[in-house]
Design a protein around this nucleic acid. Structure first.
Lengths: 174, 174
DNA sequence: GTCATTTAGTTTGGTGTCAAACTATAAGCT
DNA sequence: AGCTTATAGTTTGACACCAAACTAAATGAC
């Protein structure tokens, strides 16, 4: 049974079955959450940071109505004209099947053009349209603001090393 | 049109419309993918690293048949007996609605017990059952192996700073 | 040439997630 | 007390993702 009551301000309680003290609004009170080993483990903190950065980017890029995932896709197409969907999905770290609806949408909206290769009718060639380039430019501006925020948080000095470690994890974990 | 052909070994080509050279198996060849600004931006690398670590953890924890998400949940309940679902979802960085099916499953499988609070019939109290504690112990062993891998990659020296930066991003990004 | 194998992309099915609407309890106000 | 507002958790609908099965095209072996 949970014996502890809200508003209980006693410091010691007969709390034999694991109740938690709470503030008057029910939020944690007196007992901050104990993260145990999660507090210093890389995996958990990686997830929390990624989630937070993702949310922040979403808020930023909302003004131009593009999701964060689309940004990497457009950038990669812009930087690698004629890239195939498989190459793209690999570079982007997503399964190729996830890319199908994304590319379809980008094509439908006139940001990307998709052609079959001359000599391999299975493969697509992806390229940005002029409209796609324009959208990418404005997204990039937006992303730069976001990155500047992160820079300020991390500090110019540590950033390089930080990114190097991230890359190492992405590349070398087995 | 995509003019470039497979097996084309010319170094210069009349490649006006953005084709890409390919190897005989269609994989990128000669032209490694250009990541543009993504190469050094924090957000993108954060995502790639997180994804890779997640996959690695999944492979590791497969042997005991628990998904990575469940691990943090069980740890947090174990470390905070009587925690409520809202506190838990907050600490775990997930929406409370995502927690409903997870907790249901853990209860159904006898790993977690869930009781209403005495004095607030809305709130649940979560606690590990003995079986839950046992599973958590074996998951923790498994996660420690995973963490040791990451440690080796990052190096004991940089790890502390690395985690500090991750925490900072999670906490302070606006 | 024919057949087996490989490859590029799509389809399908299942999972995990969020956000918004909802239910029930609780707290605050008069 | 009665009414309003806030809170804990669930439900629902949408979406992103993956993995496996699938289709069409290309390659390789014979």
């Amino acid at each position: 049974m949970c014996r502890f009551r809200k508003r209980d301000t006693r410091v010691h309680g007969t709390n034999g079955t694991g109740g938690r003290r709470r503030g008057k609004n029910g939020e944690a009170f007196g007992l901050p959450v104990n993260f145990g080993p999660l507090a210093y483990w890389v995996g958990f903190n990686l997830r929390m940071a990624q989630e937070a950065a993702f949310q922040a980017f979403s808020r930023h890029s909302q003004e131009i109505g593009e999701s964060p995932g689309r940004f990497a896709t457009l950038t990669l197409i812009g930087r690698n004209p004629g890239i195939s969907q498989t190459e793209l999905s690999l570079a982007n770290g997503r399964d190729k099947s996830s890319l199908t609806p994304v590319v379809e949408d980008l094509v439908r909206r006139g940001l990307v053009e998709r052609k079959r290769m001359d000599n391999d009718r299975r493969t697509y060639c992806l390229n940005l349209t002029p409209a796609g380039k324009k959208v990418l430019t404005s997204m990039t501006r937006c992303a730069r603001r976001h990155e500047r925020n992160l820079d300020q948080l991390i500090g110019e000095r540590d950033r390089k090393k930080f990114v190097r470690i991230l890359k190492k994890i992405a590349a070398e974990i087995e």
